[in-house]
Structure formats: C-alpha cells, structure tokens
C-alpha cells in the first residue's frame, strides 16, 4: 500500500507480529547468551546448575589481573595474532595474484588451496601431527636437506607456537585466496592499460592500482582474520591432543576460558576472560576501522 500517512499503533503491532518469530530466535540464541555471559562475569559466588547467584562484584576481573596463567594466555594470543595475520594476508594476496596471472590449472590450484577450508580441523590436525613428528615427520625430513637438525615441534615449548602459527596460516589461506581472487577480478583491466601507458612497471601497477583497488577486500579479510585469530582454540586442542601445548606454550585466552569453564568449573572466571577477549577484539577492530577511513578506497 502506497501512502504517506503515519503508521498507527495497529500497523506497528501487525508489523511486530510478522517480526516476532525471528526476534524470539535472535533474542534467545544471540542476545540472551551475550547479556548472560556479560552478567556472569560479575558473579563471584554462583551455582551454575541451580542458576543461583549468591554474590556479585569485580572479583573475577581482579583474579584475572593477578593470574599469571591468564597473562600468559593474553600474551600468547597476541603473539599468535601478530604471527598469523600479516603473513596470512600477504601470502594469500601473493598467491591470489599469481593465480590471477595464469590461465591454465588456475581452477585446480584454487581447489587445492581451498581444501583446508572445507576439511575438518581435527582431520587436518591429525595430518599436521604427523608432519610435525620429530622422527618420522615430513617437515623435519625436508628441513634435513638444508642441514637443520630434527626439531620436536609439538613437544618443545619453543617450537609449539611456531608450529601452531604455520598450521593456522596454511588453514586460512584457501578462503582468503578466494576472496582476493574475486577482488582482483573486479579491478578494471583498463586501469592497468592506463597505468602501463603512464609508465608504471608491474610493481608500480601493483602498488598504485591493485592495492588501492582491492583495499576494501583487504580490509574485510584483515578484520576477519584478526577476529578469527583472537578466538583460536580448535587447532590447539586437536594439534596438541587436548593440551594447551607443552608447558602452556600455546595457552590462549579461549583455551584459558575453556579450562576455567569445563575443567575447573569457575564459570564467573570463564565469563570474565570472555569479556576481556571481547574488549581486546573491540579495541583492535575499532583501530582498524579508524585506520581504514584513510586507507581504504571504496
């Protein structure tokens, strides 16, 4: 109905009726858990099974502030994010650019790179456990050719984090390559012709045309990769057989949360660490948004 009259209460109620089923689902499975976990982070004396709250306060956050394990988890998470995201972005952009250049076998390579994304993390981790094996692993075998002594990737606390980072980068490549390929395909070929006529060499064309033109996609991929990396858990669980790495060397915030919740039944502490993680992601994402205002060209 096309009219400019102000909607009446009746109209609003009718609209609400149509929206209600969706609102109930969203409220129940999205809004309520968010609010509840936020509230739970303030429960200092709480019975999870009877949902009885005896005391509230900031004690959970105080505990986190003093807990060396949590500090380690935050530190490891940051190391992981910094170790994974830049390399993953640069590598997937590089591979996508190369794939964009070749005509033959591009489809095959695209499929190969995409495989990790559609394969179960647990299955992937099983394969990587073998690759990382000290005595029989593929990686040490290959490193042997360049004279590197066997490394006990999964049991040496110094190498557990690099091993995890390599796995995460490899796993994330496929999807990011796909996204970058879409963006690269959408760049107007005429811009490259124009840049070539303007005297730009292939590196300058990449720098002055490709990078700015795909910047919205780079931004999307980066935000996505940062958030995903902050929340890393399953790779650790599967790769190190249900342990946060040798000597807690790959204990991340979500792994800490998991331990508090499932192993130690400290629900308030688990919720509080979740809130801290949320704030960390929020700060980084806001920073990225601010930065994108200047450097992303839509």
């Amino acid at each position: 109905m096309m009219n400019n009259t102000k909607p009446t209460w009746r109209d609003n109620l009718k609209a609400l009726g149509y929206l209600l089923p969706m609102l109930i689902i969203v409220g129940m499975f999205s809004l309520y858990p968010i609010i509840k976990s936020l509230a739970m982070s303030f429960y200092t004396d709480y019975n999870f099974f009877t949902n009885q709250v005896n005391a509230i306060g900031f004690d959970n956050f105080k505990t986190l502030w003093q807990d060396a394990n949590f500090h380690l988890a935050v530190w490891n998470t940051i190391v992981f994010v910094v170790g994974v995201v830049p390399v993953e972005i640069i590598l997937s952009l590089a591979i996508a650019s190369l794939l964009n250049q070749i005509n033959r076998l591009a489809g095959l390579f695209r499929t190969l790179y995409f495989m990790p994304f559609v394969t179960s993390v647990v299955a992937i981790s099983m394969v990587w456990r073998w690759i990382y094996n000290k005595d029989a692993g593929l990686l040490n075998y290959l490193l042997g050719f360049v004279g590197v002594h066997p490394i006990d990737w999964l049991n040496d606390p110094h190498y557990a984090m690099p091993a995890l980072i390599i796995l995460a980068i490899w796993k994330g490549l496929g999807f990011n390559i796909l996204l970058f390929l879409v963006a690269l395909n959408n760049v107007d070929q005429r811009l490259y012709d124009a840049a070539m006529l303007d005297g730009a060499n292939s590196w300058q064309r990449f720098w002055h045309v490709t990078l700015p033109m795909i910047s919205p996609m780079t931004f999307l991929v980066t935000v996505n990769a940062v958030i995903g990396s902050f929340k890393v858990f399953d790779e650790i669980f599967a790769l190190f057989g249900g342990q946060p790495g040798p000597g807690h060397s790959t204990l991340t915030v979500v792994y800490y949360l998991y331990q508090m919740f499932y192993e130690q039944n400290k629900y308030g502490l688990a919720a509080a660490s979740g809130v801290v993680l949320f704030l960390m992601i929020l700060v980084v994402t806001l920073f990225q948004l601010w930065w994108s205002k200047k450097h992303v060209h839509y």
């Binding site: 107007d188 005429r190 811009l191 012709d193 124009a194 840049a195 006529l197 303007d198 005297g199 730009a200 300058q204 002055h208 045309v209 700015p212 033109m213 910047s215 060209h297």
Partner: peptide, 24 residues
C-alpha cells in the same frame, strides 16, 4: 591515450591522476 571509460584512478584526486605519469 584516453580510454572510452576514461580509466581514471578512482582512489586518486584529480591532481594526483594528472601527476601520475610524471611521477612514474
């Protein structure tokens, strides 16, 4: 060359577009 769709660099200002060949 002036292309049919102009092929201006959309992320650069007018001045930067004109300067680009000389910058290269």
């Amino acid at each position: 060359m002036v292309f049919q769709n102009y092929a201006l660099y959309p992320h650069m200002t007018v001045l930067e577009n004109i300067v680009f060949p000389m910058k290269m």
